[in-house]
């Protein structure tokens, strides 16, 4: 997947920004996060017979302007859930390896952590999260993360932005170099949350233009 260079990502922060039309689309397949990897017996037992993570794929586009990156993610969701009151919100996340070779399905490990930016339909601000293995998510280092989503015609369109460079334990994105990207999607109307989600089976290579 290629991250096109543009002079500023400011025009791309709006999910419906016309600029996205000319950016190359990459489809990333998704599968339900494996039941066996759910961190507690209760979650495994209560979702055994319940279908989840039915999303097949999401289409991504990405641009960067040398200082920060904007990633547009579009996926099918017939029933939008803002998570108002007792409901669960729809959600999505973009993950990058921090260092080493984090195993995507295992949500990384202490030696090879991964950082993701999470969007929830119930909140305005995005969240940076550091993961060192399943069930170990901690607030991630601030990377100026934002996420704005809008739903229409049965589809969510969300634009994530974050700075390329990140201090402390955060994933560094360097123009002209390669890294990897993984995604996760939660369908709120199916009460999906925590490990119950659709995830990309493995990393997808990500190449940033110079």
């Amino acid at each position: 997947m290629r991250v096109q260079k543009v002079n500023t990502i400011a025009e791309y922060t709006d999910p419906a920004a016309p600029g996205w039309g000319s950016v190359e689309v990459t489809e990333i397949e998704t599968i339900p996060a494996p039941l066996g990897l759910q961190p507690t017996e209760y979650i495994q037992v209560s979702w055994e017979e319940r279908p989840y993570g039915a999303l097949e794929q999401a289409s991504l586009r990405a641009v960067h302007d040398g200082t920060s990156i904007a990633i547009q993610m579009i996926w099918e969701d017939p029933q939008p859930s803002t998570g108002a009151g007792e409901g669960f919100p729809d959600g999505a996340a973009i993950a990058f390896p921090v260092h080493g070779e984090p195993e995507l399905m295992q949500m990384g490990s202490p030696e090879a952590p991964m950082q993701f930016v999470q969007w929830q339909a119930s909140k305005k601000q995005a969240r940076s999260v550091l993961a060192k293995g399943i069930g170990s998510t901690l607030p991630g280092a601030a990377v100026g993360e934002t996420a704005t989503g809008s739903w229409s015609g049965g589809r969510w369109t969300v634009v994530f932005t974050r700075s390329l460079a990140g201090e402390g334990e955060s994933a560094n994105l360097v123009p002209g170099s390669n890294t990897q990207i993984g995604i996760a999607v939660w369908n709120g109307s199916n009460e999906e949350r925590a490990g119950i989600k659709a995830v990309s089976a493995d990393w997808t290579a990500l190449a940033l233009d110079r």
Partner: peptide, 10 residues
């Protein structure tokens, strides 16, 4: 406690 054992975030 069933609640403690169910919470994925401890």
């Amino acid at each position: 406690p069933a609640c403690m054992e169910a919470c994925p975030r401890g």
